[in-house]
Write a protein that binds this DNA or RNA. Structure first.
Length: 471
DNA sequence: ACCGGAATAG
DNA sequence: CTATTCCGGT
């Protein structure tokens, strides 16, 4: 009694729909490193609130992509306290927790704007959707002809993007999705890939007009239980962001069952991968709930709509990245031995942990990227730049080690599991990382598609860089 | 308001 | 590990 932690009831991290067995794979909930800890993480919670309309008065997307404003700090803190059964929670404490995310790069503070923070979706995405990580995986390498692989699924950022719906705009949302939230996941941080351009930081961001949000045209066959999806800050949407090719994802077969089931619960992108029947599986049906007070809401169906990329978007890449060295990034990824999807997490997830280094290290003053952090902040220059960008993250190097575990089932066989890549749409942008790279800053709108050849070229270069590094 | 160190709890 | 709690500093 002390606290009724109703919280769970109120904001179930997982919608009722999920069955235990079915819920997201572990990786979705916790970093591997912390076994047991599957408690909801603050950022998940924030995302959760953001996705629910009922909390719009308390916290809402606003500003740049991924930016949100805590309109009622005390309330947010209160809700968080409820959720965590910490009756004495207050904004000061909550914000401290939020600050820890800076190093992890999950969040940034939007300077100059009170109570305004910005998600680094790229990171979040990776963390949560390891699949994306494929980019890092050998798989992806295959693509690059490193391995000679034949085609591989498109892991490009663009592809990733396509996975997500558009962003939450400030607006209102019509759908839940607008504001998507995020899926649970470990956050990792280490991956440097994270820096996807979308995040915005790099790109010029336009703030979104409220109207953007948009309805996603398509209705999802399923909804996400949690609805998460979020990430998408609108970033993708428009202008600045890279868009993805319409079909970039992998075919459903791609995923093995276990995963599959999980996928079905995932937000659209993934779900859509599954065959309709399966995907839907879940669904929500349940409704329910409402919780009452604040919370809950669980029921909302989230809608995820997929962005239909009707015509297919051009794939532009916009990456604006910073030009940091690509080589490095890749290098990081390359290391992981794991195979297939599994690794995605590996690489990424750790991050969180690492975020802070061991105390010792910390003390040493070594922060990993001292700078990078700083970068995060953006200072918003006028609006556009958002900020941060973060991008530079230069390496951290440790991550690779983490990889040891790969949760997903997939891994084992990468090959077999993997789908016929061939069936995939033509890879447009192959290299995910690449997109990170700084190409020329994209014009405000999308860049014309990139030329494939270039891409290859780049990859090639990267590869070489890698080699050099290795040597 | 916001930052981040330090200690500490789970 | 993540978050909580405290807290001194801007």
């Amino acid at each position: 009694m002390d606290c009724n932690c109703v919280s769970d009831l109120l904001l179930p991290p997982v919608p009722a729909l999920w069955t235990p067995g079915f819920a997201f794979p572990d990786w979705a909930y916790k970093p591997e490193s912390s076994p047991g800890s599957r408690q909801i993480q603050l950022w998940h919670f924030i995302l959760e609130l953001l996705q629910k309309e009922e909390y719009q008065g308390v916290i809402a997307w606003q500003g740049d992509y991924g930016e949100f404003v805590i309109k009622d700090p005390d309330e947010v803190a209160r809700l968080w306290g409820i959720r965590k059964c910490k009756p004495h929670m207050n904004y000061d404490k909550l914000s401290r927790a939020l600050r820890y995310y800076y190093n992890k790069r999950i969040l940034h503070k939007t300077k100059g704007k009170r109570f305004t923070y910005k998600f680094n979706f790229s990171k979040v995405v990776l963390v949560n959707y390891p699949i994306l990580d494929m980019a890092n995986s050998p798989f992806f390498l295959a693509q690059n002809h490193f391995n000679g692989g034949s085609a591989a699924p498109d892991c490009s950022p663009e592809a990733i993007q396509s996975l997500f719906p558009r962003l939450p705009d400030s607006g209102r949302g019509t759908s839940l999705f607008d504001r998507g939230s995020a899926p649970p996941g470990p956050e990792g941080d280490k991956l440097r890939l994270d820096t996807f351009p979308f995040l915005g930081s790099g790109a010029p961001c336009y703030s979104k007009p409220p109207s953007l949000l948009g309805p996603y045209p398509r209705n999802p066959p399923f909804d996400y239980p949690w609805s998460f999806n979020p990430y998408l800050p609108g970033a993708f949407s428009l202008n600045n962001c890279p868009k993805l090719p319409p079909g970039s994802l992998y075919p459903s077969q791609f995923y093995p069952n276990p995963l599959q089931s999980s996928l079905s619960q995932l937000p659209h992108p993934f779900s859509s991968l599954l065959p309709p029947g399966e995907a839907a599986g879940g669904e929500r049906g349940a409704p329910g709930q409402t919780g009452g007070t604040n919370g809950t809401a669980g029921g909302q169906p989230a809608r995820l709509c997929l962005p239909p990329y009707p015509g297919g978007l051009p794939i532009g890449r916009t990456d604006i990245g910073n030009g940091a060295t690509l080589g490095e990034r890749e290098r990081v990824e390359a290391n992981p031995p794991s195979t297939g999807l599994g690794l995605g997490l590996g690489a990424v997830s750790l991050g969180a942990g690492t975020g802070q280094q061991s105390p010792t290290e910390r003390r040493g003053g070594v922060k990993q990227d001292p700078e990078s952090d700083s970068d995060l902040e953006i200072t918003d220059l006028s609006d556009c730049s958002s900020d941060n960008e973060n991008e530079h993250d230069f390496g951290i190097g440790k991550e690779s080690s983490l990889v040891s575990r790969s949760p997903l089932v997939l891994d084992g066989k990468k090959g077999s599991l993997l789908p016929p890549i061939t069936s995939l749409p033509p890879p447009v942008s192959p290299h995910p990382l690449k997109s990170l790279m700084p190409l020329t800053p994209p014009p405000p709108s999308l860049p014309p598609s990139l030329s494939p050849s270039m891409a290859l070229h780049d990859r090639h270069r990267e590869a070489e860089t890698l080699k050099m590094i290795h040597s």
